Simulated scan of single mutants.
Amino acid sequence: MRRLLIALPLLLGACAQTAELEPAAGETLPPAPYGATEPLDAEELLTLDPQAAPERSVELRRESEEREDDPFDLPPEI
Rank of each mutant, 00 (worst) to 15 (best):
G35W: 13
E38V: 06
L60R: 15
Q51F: 13
G13M: 08
Q51S: 15
A36R: 03
E66M: 07
A19M: 03
C15K: 05
R62I: 02
E63N: 08
P71N: 05
A16F: 09
P9D: 02
Q17P: 01
L21W: 12
G26P: 05
D49A: 12
A32T: 01
E77R: 07
D49S: 11
C15E: 02
Q17M: 10
Y34A: 15
S57L: 08
E59K: 12
P23Y: 14
T47S: 13
D70V: 08
E68I: 02
Q17H: 03
E77L: 05
R61W: 13
D73S: 10
L45R: 15
S57I: 03
E44F: 04
P76K: 02
E20S: 03
A25V: 00
A52F: 00
R56A: 14
A36I: 00
V58N: 14
A36G: 04
T47G: 07
P30N: 03
T37K: 15
A42P: 00
E77W: 01
L46C: 08
P33R: 09
L21E: 14
S57K: 13
A32Q: 05
E68N: 10
Q51I: 14
F72L: 14
D49V: 13
Q51M: 14
E38W: 12
P76T: 00
D69Q: 09
R67Q: 10
E38F: 04
D69W: 06
A53Q: 08
C15F: 13
S64M: 06
P31H: 04
E65I: 00
A36M: 13
G35S: 09
P33S: 05
P30S: 00
L8A: 14
E65G: 01
P39F: 07
T47C: 07
A36E: 11
D70Y: 12
D70H: 11
P71T: 03
L21H: 11
Q51A: 15
R61P: 01
A36T: 07
P30L: 04
E20L: 07
E44V: 02
L40Y: 02
A7Y: 14
P30I: 01
R61M: 06
P23D: 06
P9W: 00
D49I: 12
T18D: 05
A16S: 10
I6S: 04
R67H: 03
G13H: 09
A14S: 14
S64N: 08
P39W: 02
A25W: 00
P31C: 02
L74G: 02
C15D: 01
E63K: 11
S57R: 14
D41E: 07
L29Q: 04
D41I: 07
L45A: 03
D73Y: 05
D69R: 12
